[in-house]
Design a protein around this nucleic acid. Structure first.
Length: 405
DNA sequence: AAAGCGCACAACCGCACGATA
DNA sequence: TTATCGTGCGGTTGTGCGCTT
């Protein structure tokens, strides 16, 4: 039994909004608010539109103080850092950029920033459509769809052996984050250390560090991804300078090549997923099991990431667990080169306590943190973007902050 | 000049979740 | 406890415009 449609699709108008429709909607909401019921709203004002469509139109276009186009370098910086930290949580990222909508940021990332940072070209829709109709390409890619990316440009690889979306499918978002992470680490190494080893990925080093220092005693609670990835995002910030925004350098390529050592996968095989529910946890991903057992036939999986082993299933979890470990080093994170990144204390002092619960308890979903991390933002003034709330402000400060702090 | 293509943006779709009856 | 509803979100698609061939 499927879910009832939110509206009668046969009678609603679709496509671009006319100025008259915009005026009707805006006038009504300006005067009466949304009334808490988007579904009923279009009927009230005589619009032949789906309630969801009205909501989207209002949030993304008609709402006051919306900025369009011309992202600043600072905004790019924030988007990049947060994307590495938390992935495609566009609404969260948007909360850090006053006046920007999640849709805007999502579009900007997909059309410009991703290419700028990763140096890749998204396959055109025509090309994708052609690939989907090509039996060979379709078979190789798992039947088409954006979750089945296997590009030849060194871009994200999300192999789906089953054909449809399966829990084993590697999240394209996670891979992009990994790749971006690597590229930026490479850049960092190139700029901050002349040795080639400096460009190597840090995660294996992290694991060794954790084990050496016994920083994860049995029974200790890990921070949530929200906390962890945010903190790591802070660290990543220091690798995301304007030079990196201008494009990935050769050092990044070198860093990727060094991954062929298998160092990363050797460490990954030993990871276990904590029992707590974490934000990015996929329902079926209990542990990072046999990570190297399922080799992706996609050339990129072995060509770049794994000379000795490709990414197997559950890398989203692996990625996040790595990060959660990374950020759980007591009072901060030992950064590359000996720097020390403080945690985000403000996150634990959100007035309603929600962030503290999610940060300390470690069993809240990321969406919970989403709401609490923007306390004022969400508290009865939904989608009234504010850059001045304490958490949002501090997060932005951290993202934009420097190593020396 | 016209077709092909890439790009940017707006809008839609479907799913997940929380609230509530 | 369960079903239903409304909402929010992320992914995807549609469309128009400009550039290239």
């Amino acid at each position: 039994m499927g879910r009832a449609p939110c509206c009668d699709k046969a009678s609603v108008k679709k496509g671009p909004w006319s100025p008259e429709e915009d005026a009707k909607l805006k006038a009504y909401i300006d005067e009466n608010g949304t009334g808490g019921n988007w579904i009923a709203l279009p009927q009230k004002i005589g619009l032949k539109r789906c309630g969801k469509s009205c909501r989207l139109r209002w949030l993304n276009y008609l709402r006051p103080n919306i900025k369009h186009g011309d992202f600043t370098e600072e905004e790019e910086h924030i988007i990049c850092s947060l994307y590495i930290s938390i992935g495609s949580r566009w609404s969260i990222i948007a909360a850090q950029l006053p006046g920007r909508t999640d849709n805007d940021i999502k579009n900007y990332w997909n059309t410009k920033l991703k290419k700028k940072l990763l140096g890749k070209r998204a396959p055109s829709r025509r090309a994708r459509a052609a690939a989907n109709h090509d039996p060979y390409l379709a078979a190789a890619g798992g039947g088409g769809g954006a979750n089945n990316m296997c590009t030849t440009s060194g871009a994200a690889v999300a192999h789906n052996a089953g054909g449809g979306a399966t829990p084993q499918a590697l999240s394209a978002s996670a891979l992009e984050r990994i790749q971006l992470h690597m590229r930026l680490q490479g850049l960092y190494g190139a700029f901050g250390d002349s040795s080639a080893a400096a460009a190597a990925p840090q995660w294996p080093k992290l694991e060794a560090l954790l084990q050496t220092n016994k920083l994860l005693p049995a029974g200790s609670s890990l921070q949530t991804d929200a906390m962890a990835t945010t903190t790591v995002g802070v660290q990543q910030q220091h690798m995301v300078d304007h030079q990196s925004l201008a494009g990935a350098g050769e050092a990044a390529v070198e860093a990727e090549q060094q991954l062929g050592s298998g160092n990363y996968m050797a460490a990954a095989g030993s990871f276990e997923r904590p029992s707590s529910k974490l934000g990015f946890y996929s329902p079926s991903g209990e542990v990072a099991e046999a990570a190297s057992a399922e080799m992706s036939p996609c050339p990129m999986a072995t060509g770049v990431y794994g000379g000795g082993g490709g990414f197997g299933p559950h890398h989203d979890e692996l990625y996040d667990f790595l990060y959660s470990k990374y950020a759980s080093l007591g009072g901060g994170v030992v950064a590359h080169g000996g720097g020390h990144i403080p945690p985000l204390p403000e996150l634990q002092h959100c007035p309603d306590g929600g962030a503290a619960a999610s940060a300390v308890g470690g069993d809240e979903k990321f969406s919970t943190w989403t709401a609490t991390a923007s306390c004022e933002y969400d508290g009865g003034h939904h989608h009234q973007l504010q850059g001045t709330n304490s958490v949002g402000g501090s997060l932005q400060d951290y993202v934009l902050g420097g190593y020396g702090q």
